[in-house]
């Protein structure tokens, strides 16, 4: 009887975990498996899977002239958006952590870009920078700064820079709130002690603030890399990756392959490539954080 009870207590936690494990298996593992399967299959334009073709889809994707451009864009997009939004978000968090009048209102305003849907944000920015009916040109012309509508997007690179800016703009609030929560958990006694010892502002910043908010910064950066890498609405709404893939990222490119060109197999291959890149990033993070845990012990 006692033994029976022991078995029950040892399997009990797993029983409680079972429903969520099942849900994860059905809604996460099955789709991932399906994408891998399609990426290794020949798929007709009408969507019928016509058997295994090995790495044929990957070969086609990798040998295409668009792929290097798209991969480069994706890396630039992820590094620039995550890097700059982290930097600006961090600075804003420090500002917002100070006592000043209207701090609550300021914090609420900073959340707006985050609280609005990405499609709306991207649509609004597309409207702002448009050469022919854009709000920016109208404003500058009304103010007398410009006498003729300026073309804010004369080259694909200019378009891409604007898209990166929109990405940064909508990502800042997330970083800011992560850092802010870290800042608020720092005990004021550290700063008081440092001030008594005669530490300068920068010394306090680099010796106290940054080391103590580092865990929140790491979490926000890892999550942001995943979100931004997979972000679709901004690029799609503003340029659809045009002209000639010059502003495509992996996600918009695979969408075009799947739903404009009917190449589901190649689209799945691009998806797998993106998945592997993210897995590599995530494993670097895991290795680093596990090593740190080991050295802490």
């Amino acid at each position: 009887m006692k033994k029976k009870k022991k078995i029950l207590t040892s399997i009990e936690p797993y029983l409680w975990l079972l429903p969520s494990m099942l849900l994860m298996a059905v809604f996460i593992l099955v789709p991932i498996f399906e994408v891998f399967r399609i990426s290794l299959s020949k798929v007709s334009k009408a969507g019928i899977v016509k058997g295994f073709i090995g790495l044929g889809n990957f070969q086609k994707v990798l040998s295409g002239s668009a792929f290097p451009i798209v991969l480069k864009n994706t890396l630039i997009w992820t590094v620039v958006v995550v890097g700059l939004s982290t930097l600006i978000g961090f600075i804003l968090a420090i500002v917002m952590n100070n006592q000043f009048r209207g701090r609550k209102a300021a914090r609420a305003i900073v959340v707006f870009p985050w609280a609005t849907s990405l499609i709306i944000q991207a649509g609004v920015w597309k409207f702002i920078i448009d050469t022919d009916y854009g709000a920016l040109n109208t404003l500058l012309m009304q103010l007398g700064i410009l006498d003729k509508a300026a073309n804010w997007t004369p080259t694909p690179a200019a378009y891409f820079a604007w898209e990166c800016w929109v990405g940064i703009f909508v990502t800042i609030p997330f970083v800011m709130f992560c850092v802010l929560s870290g800042l608020q958990s720092i005990d004021n006694a550290y700063y008081e002690a440092a001030t008594v010892d005669g530490a300068t502002y920068w010394q306090r910043m680099f010796r106290i603030t940054i080391p103590l908010v580092k865990p929140s910064l790491t979490v926000s950066t890892v999550l942001n890399i995943i979100y931004v890498f997979n972000s679709f609405p901004i690029v799609w709404t503003i340029t659809k990756g045009d002209p000639a893939n010059r502003t495509d990222t992996l996600v918009t490119y695979l969408y075009k392959l799947a739903f404009y060109n009917g190449k589901s197999g190649e689209a799945a291959a691009v998806s797998v490539i993106g998945f592997l890149i993210l897995c590599a990033c995530a494993s670097v993070y895991m290795v680093v954080s596990m090593r740190k845990e080991g050295s802490d012990e």
Binding site: T131, D132, Y133, N151, T153, Y159, T239, D242
Partner: peptide, 21 residues
Amino acid sequence: TNSDPSNDTRYDLQDMFGAGQ
């Protein structure tokens, strides 16, 4: 022509035509 043929869709053009642009 319109300044950005890679991004101005037919609907954008029809709007600009309607507006006399």
